[in-house]
Amino acid sequence: MTQEAVLDRAGAAPRRSSGWARFASLILADKKALVGLVILSLFVVAAVLGPVLSPYDPNAMDFDMIVGPSWTHPLGTDDLGRDLLSRLIVGTQISLFVGVSTVAIALVLGVGLGVLAGYLGGWVDHVIMRYIDLQWAFPNFIIAVYLVAVLGTGLVNVIVAISLAFVDDFARIARSMVLSIKEEQYIAAARTVGVSDFRIMWRHILPNATAPIIVQATVSVSYAILGEASLSFLGLGVEAATPTWGLILSESRSFISRAWWLGIFPGLAIMLTVLSINFLGDALRDFLDVREGRGI
Protein backbone atom coordinates (compact mmCIF):
# COMPACT_ATOMS: atom_id res chain seq x y z
CA MET A 1 0.00 0.00 0.00
CA THR A 2 2.69 2.45 1.02
CA GLN A 3 4.71 1.50 -2.02
CA GLU A 4 1.80 2.19 -4.31
CA ALA A 5 1.24 5.49 -2.53
CA VAL A 6 4.80 6.50 -3.31
CA LEU A 7 4.36 5.48 -6.92
CA ASP A 8 1.17 7.47 -6.97
CA ARG A 9 2.93 10.62 -6.07
CA ALA A 10 5.71 10.05 -8.54
CA GLY A 11 3.23 9.94 -11.40
CA ALA A 12 0.86 12.55 -10.05
CA ALA A 13 -2.00 13.24 -12.39
CA PRO A 14 -1.30 16.25 -14.58
CA ARG A 15 -3.21 19.38 -13.78
CA ARG A 16 -5.32 19.83 -16.84
CA SER A 17 -6.13 23.35 -17.86
CA SER A 18 -9.42 24.09 -19.54
CA GLY A 19 -9.99 22.91 -23.10
CA TRP A 20 -9.75 26.38 -24.67
CA ALA A 21 -6.57 27.27 -22.86
CA ARG A 22 -5.01 23.99 -23.95
CA PHE A 23 -6.10 24.51 -27.56
CA ALA A 24 -4.69 28.03 -27.52
CA SER A 25 -1.33 26.87 -26.20
CA LEU A 26 -1.24 24.08 -28.76
CA ILE A 27 -1.93 26.53 -31.60
CA LEU A 28 0.69 28.99 -30.36
CA ALA A 29 3.28 26.22 -30.15
CA ASP A 30 2.49 24.97 -33.64
CA LYS A 31 3.62 27.48 -36.28
CA LYS A 32 1.68 25.87 -39.10
CA ALA A 33 -1.52 25.93 -37.11
CA LEU A 34 -0.92 29.57 -36.22
CA VAL A 35 -0.48 30.49 -39.89
CA GLY A 36 -3.60 28.49 -40.76
CA LEU A 37 -5.60 30.21 -38.06
CA VAL A 38 -4.53 33.70 -39.16
CA ILE A 39 -5.30 33.06 -42.84
CA LEU A 40 -8.61 31.40 -42.16
CA SER A 41 -9.59 34.19 -39.77
CA LEU A 42 -8.97 36.74 -42.54
CA PHE A 43 -11.23 34.78 -44.88
CA VAL A 44 -13.90 34.44 -42.22
CA VAL A 45 -13.78 38.19 -41.60
CA ALA A 46 -14.08 38.72 -45.36
CA ALA A 47 -17.03 36.34 -45.45
CA VAL A 48 -18.84 38.05 -42.60
CA LEU A 49 -18.09 41.65 -43.55
CA GLY A 50 -17.96 41.04 -47.32
CA PRO A 51 -20.30 43.74 -48.60
CA VAL A 52 -18.81 46.32 -46.22
CA LEU A 53 -15.20 45.59 -47.12
CA SER A 54 -15.50 45.33 -50.86
CA PRO A 55 -14.54 48.59 -52.58
CA TYR A 56 -17.07 48.22 -55.38
CA ASP A 57 -20.38 46.51 -56.01
CA PRO A 58 -19.28 43.04 -57.14
CA ASN A 59 -21.76 43.07 -59.98
CA ALA A 60 -21.33 46.67 -61.11
CA MET A 61 -20.04 46.76 -64.67
CA ASP A 62 -17.67 49.38 -66.02
CA PHE A 63 -15.89 50.25 -69.22
CA ASP A 64 -12.50 49.47 -67.61
CA MET A 65 -12.67 45.91 -68.93
CA ILE A 66 -9.79 43.43 -68.43
CA VAL A 67 -7.57 45.96 -66.75
CA GLY A 68 -4.64 44.62 -64.75
CA PRO A 69 -4.03 45.33 -61.07
CA SER A 70 -3.81 49.04 -60.36
CA TRP A 71 -4.52 51.52 -57.53
CA THR A 72 -8.16 51.85 -58.53
CA HIS A 73 -8.66 48.10 -59.03
CA PRO A 74 -6.07 46.32 -56.78
CA LEU A 75 -6.69 42.92 -58.39
CA GLY A 76 -7.81 44.14 -61.77
CA THR A 77 -11.16 43.78 -63.52
CA ASP A 78 -12.80 41.07 -65.57
CA ASP A 79 -14.25 41.05 -69.06
CA LEU A 80 -17.34 42.97 -67.94
CA GLY A 81 -15.31 45.54 -66.02
CA ARG A 82 -16.31 44.15 -62.60
CA ASP A 83 -13.78 44.66 -59.78
CA LEU A 84 -12.07 41.33 -59.07
CA LEU A 85 -11.22 42.13 -55.43
CA SER A 86 -14.85 42.94 -54.67
CA ARG A 87 -16.01 39.77 -56.35
CA LEU A 88 -13.49 37.63 -54.48
CA ILE A 89 -14.41 39.18 -51.12
CA VAL A 90 -18.11 38.66 -51.64
CA GLY A 91 -17.43 35.20 -53.06
CA THR A 92 -15.64 34.17 -49.87
CA GLN A 93 -18.94 33.85 -48.09
CA ILE A 94 -20.43 31.42 -50.60
CA SER A 95 -17.29 29.37 -51.12
CA LEU A 96 -16.62 28.92 -47.40
CA PHE A 97 -20.27 28.16 -46.76
CA VAL A 98 -20.33 25.54 -49.52
CA GLY A 99 -17.08 23.99 -48.34
CA VAL A 100 -18.00 23.77 -44.68
CA SER A 101 -21.66 22.88 -44.99
CA THR A 102 -21.15 20.10 -47.54
CA VAL A 103 -18.49 18.49 -45.40
CA ALA A 104 -20.65 18.82 -42.31
CA ILE A 105 -23.57 17.07 -44.02
CA ALA A 106 -21.36 14.39 -45.59
CA LEU A 107 -19.60 13.80 -42.27
CA VAL A 108 -22.78 13.37 -40.26
CA LEU A 109 -24.40 11.06 -42.82
CA GLY A 110 -21.28 9.11 -43.72
CA VAL A 111 -20.01 8.60 -40.18
CA GLY A 112 -23.51 7.67 -39.05
CA LEU A 113 -23.86 5.01 -41.75
CA GLY A 114 -20.31 3.76 -41.27
CA VAL A 115 -20.63 3.39 -37.51
CA LEU A 116 -23.96 1.58 -37.83
CA ALA A 117 -22.57 -0.78 -40.48
CA GLY A 118 -19.38 -1.51 -38.58
CA TYR A 119 -20.96 -1.95 -35.18
CA LEU A 120 -24.13 -3.84 -36.04
CA GLY A 121 -22.62 -6.00 -38.78
CA GLY A 122 -24.82 -8.66 -40.37
CA TRP A 123 -27.44 -7.59 -42.87
CA VAL A 124 -27.30 -3.91 -41.83
CA ASP A 125 -23.64 -3.90 -42.78
CA HIS A 126 -24.38 -5.64 -46.07
CA VAL A 127 -27.13 -3.24 -47.11
CA ILE A 128 -25.19 -0.11 -46.20
CA MET A 129 -21.88 -1.23 -47.61
CA ARG A 130 -23.29 -2.48 -50.91
CA TYR A 131 -24.76 0.97 -51.40
CA ILE A 132 -21.43 2.55 -50.46
CA ASP A 133 -19.61 0.21 -52.85
CA LEU A 134 -21.97 1.27 -55.59
CA GLN A 135 -21.24 4.91 -54.92
CA TRP A 136 -17.52 4.16 -54.61
CA ALA A 137 -17.56 2.78 -58.14
CA PHE A 138 -18.32 6.22 -59.57
CA PRO A 139 -16.09 9.28 -59.27
CA ASN A 140 -17.51 11.71 -56.72
CA PHE A 141 -17.82 14.43 -59.32
CA ILE A 142 -19.94 12.28 -61.66
CA ILE A 143 -22.32 11.60 -58.78
CA ALA A 144 -22.54 15.30 -57.97
CA VAL A 145 -23.26 16.10 -61.64
CA TYR A 146 -25.93 13.42 -61.73
CA LEU A 147 -27.56 14.66 -58.54
CA VAL A 148 -27.63 18.26 -59.76
CA ALA A 149 -29.17 17.06 -63.00
CA VAL A 150 -31.92 15.39 -60.97
CA LEU A 151 -32.37 18.07 -58.32
CA GLY A 152 -31.84 21.12 -60.54
CA THR A 153 -29.28 23.90 -60.18
CA GLY A 154 -28.99 26.45 -57.41
CA LEU A 155 -26.86 26.88 -54.30
CA VAL A 156 -28.82 24.54 -52.00
CA ASN A 157 -28.95 21.76 -54.58
CA VAL A 158 -25.24 22.10 -55.24
CA ILE A 159 -24.55 21.70 -51.51
CA VAL A 160 -26.83 18.67 -51.27
CA ALA A 161 -25.31 17.08 -54.37
CA ILE A 162 -21.68 17.54 -53.31
CA SER A 163 -22.32 16.36 -49.76
CA LEU A 164 -24.11 13.20 -50.89
CA ALA A 165 -21.24 12.50 -53.26
CA PHE A 166 -18.81 12.59 -50.31
CA VAL A 167 -20.80 10.29 -48.02
CA ASP A 168 -19.01 7.12 -49.09
CA ASP A 169 -15.54 8.39 -48.11
CA PHE A 170 -16.66 9.07 -44.56
CA ALA A 171 -18.69 5.87 -44.27
CA ARG A 172 -15.72 3.72 -45.27
CA ILE A 173 -13.32 5.36 -42.86
CA ALA A 174 -15.78 5.25 -39.97
CA ARG A 175 -16.67 1.62 -40.60
CA SER A 176 -13.09 0.43 -40.74
CA MET A 177 -12.27 2.26 -37.50
CA VAL A 178 -15.32 0.84 -35.74
CA LEU A 179 -14.50 -2.70 -36.87
CA SER A 180 -11.18 -2.63 -35.08
CA ILE A 181 -12.24 -0.59 -32.06
CA LYS A 182 -15.30 -2.66 -31.23
CA GLU A 183 -13.08 -5.67 -30.51
CA GLU A 184 -11.16 -3.78 -27.84
CA GLN A 185 -11.52 -4.94 -24.29
CA TYR A 186 -12.69 -1.55 -23.06
CA ILE A 187 -15.76 -1.93 -25.23
CA ALA A 188 -16.46 -5.31 -23.62
CA ALA A 189 -15.86 -3.62 -20.27
CA ALA A 190 -18.38 -0.90 -21.12
CA ARG A 191 -20.90 -3.60 -21.97
CA THR A 192 -20.38 -5.29 -18.60
CA VAL A 193 -21.50 -2.17 -16.79
CA GLY A 194 -24.73 -2.15 -18.78
CA VAL A 195 -24.06 0.59 -21.34
CA SER A 196 -26.51 0.39 -24.26
CA ASP A 197 -25.38 -0.33 -27.82
CA PHE A 198 -26.29 3.19 -28.87
CA ARG A 199 -24.14 4.77 -26.17
CA ILE A 200 -21.28 2.37 -26.89
CA MET A 201 -21.34 3.42 -30.53
CA TRP A 202 -21.38 7.17 -30.01
CA ARG A 203 -19.74 7.71 -26.66
CA HIS A 204 -17.17 4.91 -26.48
CA ILE A 205 -16.20 3.97 -30.02
CA LEU A 206 -16.56 7.21 -31.98
CA PRO A 207 -14.17 9.30 -29.82
CA ASN A 208 -11.49 6.75 -30.63
CA ALA A 209 -12.09 7.18 -34.36
CA THR A 210 -11.89 10.98 -34.65
CA ALA A 211 -8.35 11.38 -35.97
CA PRO A 212 -8.76 9.88 -39.47
CA ILE A 213 -12.25 11.38 -39.79
CA ILE A 214 -10.93 14.88 -39.13
CA VAL A 215 -8.16 14.42 -41.65
CA GLN A 216 -10.71 13.30 -44.22
CA ALA A 217 -12.94 16.27 -43.37
CA THR A 218 -10.20 18.85 -43.90
CA VAL A 219 -9.25 17.29 -47.21
CA SER A 220 -12.89 17.17 -48.24
CA VAL A 221 -13.44 20.88 -47.56
CA SER A 222 -10.97 21.64 -50.34
CA TYR A 223 -12.61 19.17 -52.71
CA ALA A 224 -16.01 20.64 -51.91
CA ILE A 225 -14.86 24.16 -52.79
CA LEU A 226 -13.36 22.84 -56.00
CA GLY A 227 -16.48 20.76 -56.64
CA GLU A 228 -18.66 23.82 -56.46
CA ALA A 229 -16.27 25.55 -58.85
CA SER A 230 -16.44 22.64 -61.29
CA LEU A 231 -20.21 22.42 -61.19
CA SER A 232 -20.52 26.16 -61.70
CA PHE A 233 -18.15 25.96 -64.63
CA LEU A 234 -20.36 23.38 -66.29
CA GLY A 235 -23.35 25.60 -65.72
CA LEU A 236 -24.69 23.18 -63.15
CA GLY A 237 -23.86 25.31 -60.15
CA VAL A 238 -25.06 28.64 -58.88
CA GLU A 239 -26.49 31.32 -61.19
CA ALA A 240 -24.05 32.92 -63.56
CA ALA A 241 -23.88 36.33 -61.89
CA THR A 242 -23.19 34.98 -58.40
CA PRO A 243 -19.59 35.72 -57.48
CA THR A 244 -18.18 32.41 -56.23
CA TRP A 245 -14.48 31.60 -56.43
CA GLY A 246 -15.07 28.63 -58.62
CA LEU A 247 -17.23 30.52 -61.07
CA ILE A 248 -14.78 33.41 -61.28
CA LEU A 249 -11.99 30.93 -61.91
CA SER A 250 -13.82 29.09 -64.62
CA GLU A 251 -14.94 32.28 -66.35
CA SER A 252 -11.31 33.39 -66.41
CA ARG A 253 -10.36 30.51 -68.66
CA SER A 254 -11.37 32.32 -71.79
CA PHE A 255 -8.99 35.19 -71.01
CA ILE A 256 -6.11 33.20 -69.57
CA SER A 257 -3.62 34.43 -72.18
CA ARG A 258 -4.61 38.10 -71.82
CA ALA A 259 -5.45 38.43 -68.13
CA TRP A 260 -3.34 36.34 -65.76
CA TRP A 261 -4.88 38.01 -62.70
CA LEU A 262 -8.30 36.59 -63.40
CA GLY A 263 -6.99 33.04 -62.92
CA ILE A 264 -4.27 33.57 -60.33
CA PHE A 265 -6.20 35.43 -57.62
CA PRO A 266 -9.27 33.19 -57.29
CA GLY A 267 -6.93 30.18 -57.48
CA LEU A 268 -4.79 31.71 -54.74
CA ALA A 269 -7.86 32.30 -52.58
CA ILE A 270 -8.92 28.67 -52.94
CA MET A 271 -5.42 27.41 -52.28
CA LEU A 272 -4.89 29.51 -49.17
CA THR A 273 -8.24 28.49 -47.73
CA VAL A 274 -7.60 24.80 -48.33
CA LEU A 275 -4.08 25.06 -46.93
CA SER A 276 -5.15 26.86 -43.79
CA ILE A 277 -7.96 24.37 -43.18
CA ASN A 278 -5.52 21.49 -43.53
CA PHE A 279 -3.08 23.09 -41.10
CA LEU A 280 -5.84 23.66 -38.59
CA GLY A 281 -7.13 20.14 -39.10
CA ASP A 282 -3.75 18.73 -38.12
CA ALA A 283 -3.73 20.81 -34.97
CA LEU A 284 -7.29 19.81 -34.16
CA ARG A 285 -6.39 16.16 -34.54
CA ASP A 286 -3.49 16.53 -32.11
CA PHE A 287 -5.72 18.38 -29.70
CA LEU A 288 -8.41 15.72 -29.71
CA ASP A 289 -5.94 12.90 -29.27
CA VAL A 290 -5.54 12.76 -25.51
CA ARG A 291 -3.02 9.96 -25.80
CA GLU A 292 -0.40 12.04 -27.49
CA GLY A 293 2.33 12.48 -24.90
CA ARG A 294 1.05 15.61 -23.15
CA GLY A 295 0.76 14.67 -19.52
CA ILE A 296 3.41 12.65 -17.77
Partner: peptide, 23 residues
Protein backbone atom coordinates in the same frame (compact mmCIF):
# COMPACT_ATOMS: atom_id res chain seq x y z
CA UNK B 1 -28.44 -4.57 -19.01
CA UNK B 2 -30.01 -3.67 -15.69
CA UNK B 3 -28.08 -6.55 -14.13
CA UNK B 4 -24.74 -5.68 -15.71
CA UNK B 5 -22.84 -3.29 -13.52
CA UNK B 6 -25.84 -2.69 -11.26
CA UNK B 7 -26.22 -6.12 -9.66
CA UNK B 8 -23.13 -7.92 -10.92
CA UNK B 9 -19.82 -6.12 -11.40
CA UNK B 10 -17.04 -7.46 -13.57
CA UNK B 11 -13.26 -7.02 -13.44
CA UNK B 12 -11.18 -8.06 -16.42
CA UNK B 13 -7.77 -9.55 -16.78
CA UNK B 14 -6.03 -6.75 -18.61
CA UNK B 15 -6.25 -3.43 -16.78
CA UNK B 16 -4.12 -1.88 -19.53
CA UNK B 17 -6.81 -2.43 -22.16
CA UNK B 18 -9.98 -2.40 -20.08
CA UNK B 19 -10.20 1.37 -19.86
CA UNK B 20 -11.13 3.47 -22.87
CA UNK B 21 -7.99 5.47 -23.78
CA UNK B 22 -9.82 8.60 -24.90
CA UNK B 23 -12.26 9.01 -22.02
Amino acid sequence: RQVRGRRIGMIFQEPMTSLNPVL
